[in-house]
Design a binder for these strands. Structure first.
Lengths: 151, 151
DNA sequence: ATAACGGTAACATTAAAAGTTACAATTAAA
DNA sequence: TTTAATTGTAACTTTTAATGTTACCGTTAT
């Protein structure tokens, strides 16, 4: 799963968990929604667990659930949990080239500012917001049937 | 070259070209600076050429140069030229899942805003700015010897 | 006890990126 | 006018990262 796909998938999972409240969802159920393998889901969720976004229970009827209120989880939180490389990743530095060896210093400030700008926007949208938006799209009648679970 | 590395490399090349004015630089020279292969450089520069950022001349003593003033090339221009996937890339949509099938619509606005916020910051820094910054770091004495060219 | 689950390691497969070789077309310069 | 240095690009190989799969241990509800 490429970095950008991983992020979108993580957002999808969080909305899914909020959308099916008072249930834990198994990796198999989530995997169906994402069209992938349960182990891939479990691996991805580890990163969200490490950031206190998703929690799990073991054993029969175990599964995953949001570790805190959906209104306390925003898109920046999930971004931080799932990004695995710097936005501006330098190629191998060539110490004989003054451009190469100084590149990071040259762009450090502007990329810090750009990331801050993005952060302040992403922090404004929570999983609760997105779920509300989803329910508006669906209408209340069908709001609680995200996917056929088969369990 | 992953997307983020490609971007950093493209920025490096543009600064390099500005830093060595009144010369065209060969793909071999640039490749040394980046520690890679000349063909890789030529391929990357194609994307910058398509966006009117870099131009080239053929034949002996041919090579690459900035297609316009360094003060008219900013970091957002280069970002647009080198990004090859959406920031928020969805996994394969599962039409049976209402979260999956509505995900793009749910996040469309906020990601548009986040990208706009980033854009407005990146547009504020040009290649001319970065080169000035570099020359300040180096001091004028050694400002014109970015790399041993060997040609 | 049993069966359904998460956690995780080991391995296999696939896809993408990077590197390489080759060569036609162009052009400066000997 | 020949030669050599260059870009542009295609074809191919190699390497690396992502993804998928299998397996098994520990946990827990039934």
């Amino acid at each position: 799963m490429r970095a950008s796909t991983k992020y979108a998938t993580a957002v999808q999972i969080c909305i899914f968990l909020k959308h099916m409240p008072d249930q834990v969802l198994s990796s198999t159920t989530i995997a169906k929604s994402v069209n992938t393998n349960p182990v891939v889901i479990r691996r991805l969720i580890q990163e969200l667990r490490n950031h206190g976004i998703i929690a799990s229970s073991s054993g029969t009827k175990g599964g995953f659930y949001l570790a805190k209120e959906a209104s306390a989880i925003n898109l920046w939180d999930i971004y931080l949990a799932t990004r695995d490389e710097e936005f501006f990743k330098r190629p191998k530095v060539n110490p004989e080239c003054v451009v190469s060896s100084n590149l990071k210093a040259l762009v450090y400030d502007v990329f810090g500012e750009a990331e801050e700008a993005m952060k302040s926007k992403l922090q404004q949208t929570t999983i609760a917001d997105l779920n509300t938006h989803l329910e508006n799209i669906l209408g209340q009648s069908e709001a609680k049937t995200a996917i056929k679970q088969g369990r």
